[in-house]
Simulated scan of single mutants.
Amino acid sequence: MDRRQSRREAIVGCILGTAVGDALGLPYEGLSPKRSARLLGPPDRYRFFFRRGMVSDDTEHTCMVAQSLIDAGGDVPKFTRAFARRLRWWILALPAGVGKATARSGIKLWFGASPEKAGVFSAGNGPAMRAAIFGASLDDVPSILNFVRASSRLTHSDPKADYGAFAVALAAKHSRDHAAVDANLWLDEVVDAVGEGGAELIDLLRQAIRSVDAGETTRTFANSLGLERGVTGYTYHTVPVAIHTWLSSPNDFRKAVTSIIESGGDADTTAAIVGGIVGAGVGTEGIPHEWLDGIWEWPRSVPWMQRLGEALADSLEGDRSMKSPTVNPIAVLLRNLLFLFIVLFHGFRRLAPPYV
């Protein structure tokens, strides 16, 4: 496979891998490992809506990033403006389950804040959830870091959010470029990217690597971080556990996504991150076809996301005439209302036993 085709496969695999992980993990979001197993069963199929899956903000942000990369043509300020514009309209379409920092940033943008000042001081995992696509798409590490930083600062101003997103983006790039993962080679790149300010994250990532080398499961590693009741949305919890999962199963999409969901907590985001990283390495063919076929989405359908990935790949190969696929805003609003209804159903279901 030539370089151009390899990148195309990585981009499409990353987007679709993010979507599958997101959709599989969504019904388990916020549940402890024990309760999720008793309430829903194993994450081996979609359990959101009649054996079908739908995506949440994790996939939607990844798609908006991909669209904005096409618009930007390699220009970071242009990317920032394009992503900020999409984020404004995304907030207006009433997305369910949006994070506090992202919601506040979107509101600030509507009230006239510049993209550079819209972010709030938060180390949530929002920037990390949309970071894998940068590593799957771009070749130059400094360029990756510049785009990731612009994406992160639009919603989160805490440098920790940058560092977590850097680690995810570089993992996706490593997954794309290496058939056999070299954890230490990847970690060296992360060390250079985060500098002294990211020392705490580097320590956590080293713990993850040692845990993988010792043959520990991802859930055991999460427990060692005090996350027995599930992985939180704090980026220094989310990212090390996601990286542990990737290093444990770098070429096994099914096992990777399943094991991170079984760790509980913010399961849609953690599975979306892992799905994006592993998807960048295995491509579309490495993602179980029944999981791709089971996604029930509109207007951001699986074929639409595939077209988006292909358009991004073509634009990065120099086709400046390439336009990003668009979505009908009325269709998005109608879809979000249905999505909210299903989410509320799941919320009411959780009021009933089993409670442990």
Rank of each mutant, 00 (worst) to 15 (best):
8 R>I: 00
10 A>S: 09
10 A>G: 04
15 I>V: 14
27 P>T: 11
29 E>W: 12
29 E>L: 08
32 S>F: 12
32 S>M: 01
33 P>N: 12
40 L>I: 02
49 F>Q: 01
52 R>A: 12
60 E>Y: 13
61 H>T: 06
69 L>C: 13
72 A>T: 09
75 D>Q: 07
77 P>M: 12
77 P>T: 09
78 K>V: 15
88 R>V: 01
89 W>K: 05
94 L>T: 03
98 V>D: 01
100 K>I: 08
102 T>I: 08
103 A>H: 11
106 G>N: 03
115 P>Y: 13
140 D>P: 11
144 I>R: 00
168 V>F: 05
168 V>Q: 08
175 S>C: 13
179 A>H: 07
189 E>V: 04
195 G>T: 15
200 E>Q: 11
202 I>Y: 01
210 R>F: 03
214 A>D: 14
217 T>S: 09
228 E>N: 11
241 V>E: 09
249 S>H: 09
255 K>P: 08
260 I>N: 10
265 G>W: 08
267 A>H: 02
276 G>V: 11
279 G>I: 05
280 A>I: 03
289 H>R: 10
290 E>D: 15
290 E>I: 08
296 W>P: 00
296 W>K: 11
300 R>C: 07
301 S>G: 06
304 W>D: 14
315 S>P: 05
319 D>I: 04
324 S>I: 11
328 N>R: 06
329 P>N: 06
338 L>M: 05
339 F>A: 03
345 F>A: 11
355 Y>L: 08
